[in-house]
């Protein structure tokens, strides 16, 4: 199969089974893009999420563009991104043209009550997997704990945490370098 088509179809599949946006996409990305195809590593996926939250636009689109570019360059970036938006375009256009409010359906409400549970369990499960490649020593574990506590306690933009953590990483490097040279 054409490799761009494969990228496009993989992301179209991800777009059609992701309920709840960018974060909900993570467990499926981890399975299909990291484990199955090996297009990016777990570390890279975490990097893309970090940058994707601090740059303009939708996190899901930013992440798809990053992965597509990493795998197959600019055309790859566009293929992945068009793939991730296609299911939304089709499904939402159908719903909007039927003029029905699907959220009125009782059965769908029950189904979504269940799906909501699976979404956060999958996210937490994926986080546990990802933490193996991001939490490696006291420095990274304490950064994780501090950011997690702050995000749960105060309402601040993720930009602050991402920039702050990047600066901490850099300072640690400078500090270590000095330690080595003296």
């Amino acid at each position: 199969m054409n490799k761009y088509l494969q990228l496009f179809l993989t992301f179209a599949k991800i777009g059609s089974v992701t309920f709840g946006g960018g974060y909900a996409m993570l467990p499926i990305l981890e399975r299909d893009v990291v484990e199955r195809h090996g297009w990016v590593t777990r570390e890279e996926l975490l990097d893309y999420y970090a940058i994707g939250q601090t740059t303009p636009g939708i996190i899901a689109v930013n992440t798809a563009t990053f992965i597509g570019y990493k795998h197959l360059g600019v055309i790859g970036a566009i293929s992945a991104t068009l793939g991730i938006i296609l299911p939304s375009l089709i499904i939402i256009s159908i719903i909007a043209s039927l003029l029905v409010n699907i959220t009125d359906s009782e059965m769908l409400q029950h189904a979504f009550a269940g799906i909501r549970v699976s979404v956060y369990v999958l996210i937490i499960h994926a986080v546990i997997k990802l933490s193996k490649s991001s939490l490696k020593d006291w420095f990274t574990i304490s950064l994780f704990a501090i950011v997690l506590l702050l995000t749960l306690l105060v309402n601040m933009t993720p930009v602050v945490f991402v920039v702050g953590a990047g600066v901490c990483g850099y300072l640690l490097y400078v500090f270590k370098k000095r330690g080595e040279s003296s």
């Binding site: 975490l46 990097d47 994926a126 991001s134 994780f144 501090i146 950011v147 995000t151 990483g169 850099y170």
Partner: peptide
Amino acid sequence: AVFYGLRPASTALIAS
């Protein structure tokens, strides 16, 4: 080095 610091923060944001 910057990414070394970013990854735990990214993990925490997703966990949160």
